[in-house]
């Protein structure tokens, strides 16, 4: 059933232990790789969107200080219109990136669902006390699902937070609140620092990383 050629080439410490991966194992391994790539993508989007968000805040501060000087000088109407156009442009750009981040989150959800699917399948194949297969080193499939679920929950909260922030970012005039919005955006308070450990463990277990 399995091709035996892989075995001779791969060194002992690298998964797969078996000559080739079963369908479930392959799916798990691909999922782990997807997790890694999607997280990197998310980081890029997060940094890009932060740059735009801070531009929005700066622009708001500039226009507000211009407004407060209204009585002293006649406002330059052209300036105000260009500022508004620019603000509009930045806001839609930010929304666009947020949509992309939303897509990433949906993909992460899907990955978690497939982990759950594999767990259900195994529960069906090996009912009751029959020990379930370990596809790689030590992790049972349920651990992949639980890890993925923990991680995706962090992103879920983060997504909600970002949605709320984007709704108010260009409207609030509270300077402190703006700063809180920006720090929330950049530092992602709901994504725990241990998420890297979770991801790396998953990569290590599936053989994407070696000891």
């Amino acid at each position: 059933m399995y091709a035996d050629t892989m075995e001779s080439k791969s060194p002992g410490y690298v998964t797969p232990k078996k000559p080739a991966l079963s369908a479930s194992a392959r799916k798990i391994k691909d999922n782990a790789a997807d997790w890694h790539n999607l997280m990197l993508k998310w980081e890029t989007y997060n940094n890009d969107s932060f740059t735009i968000a801070s531009k929005i805040v700066n622009l708001k501060i500039i226009t507000e200080s211009a407004d407060s000087m209204l009585d002293e000088t006649t406002p330059n109407k052209d300036n105000i219109t260009t500022d508004k156009v620019e603000l509009d442009r930045l806001c839609s750009e930010l929304l666009h990136i947020l949509e992309n981040m939303e897509k990433i989150w949906t993909k992460l959800e899907k990955i978690t669902v497939t982990f759950k699917g594999i767990c259900d399948l195994e529960a069906y194949q090996f009912p009751g006390d029959i020990s379930k297969p370990v596809h790689f080193h030590t992790w049972p499939t349920t651990l992949f699902y639980e890890t993925s679920k923990t991680m995706v929950d962090m992103y879920k909260k983060e997504m909600e937070l970002k949605r709320t922030i984007i709704g108010d970012l260009a409207h609030t005039s509270d300077q402190d609140l703006r700063m809180v919005y920006l720090s929330c955006w950049l530092y992602q308070p709901y994504i725990d620092n241990n998420i890297k450990v979770l991801l790396e463990s998953m990569l290590l277990e599936t053989g994407h990383r070696t000891f």
Binding site: E160, L161, T164, D174, S183, Y187, Q188, P189
Partner: peptide, 17 residues
């Protein structure tokens, strides 16, 4: 603020900062 529905957000953010 609009952030009122987020649980422990202030603590989370403070921790990160």
């Amino acid at each position: 603020t609009p952030l009122s529905s987020f649980i422990n957000l202030q603590e989370h953010l403070r921790f990160k900062l």
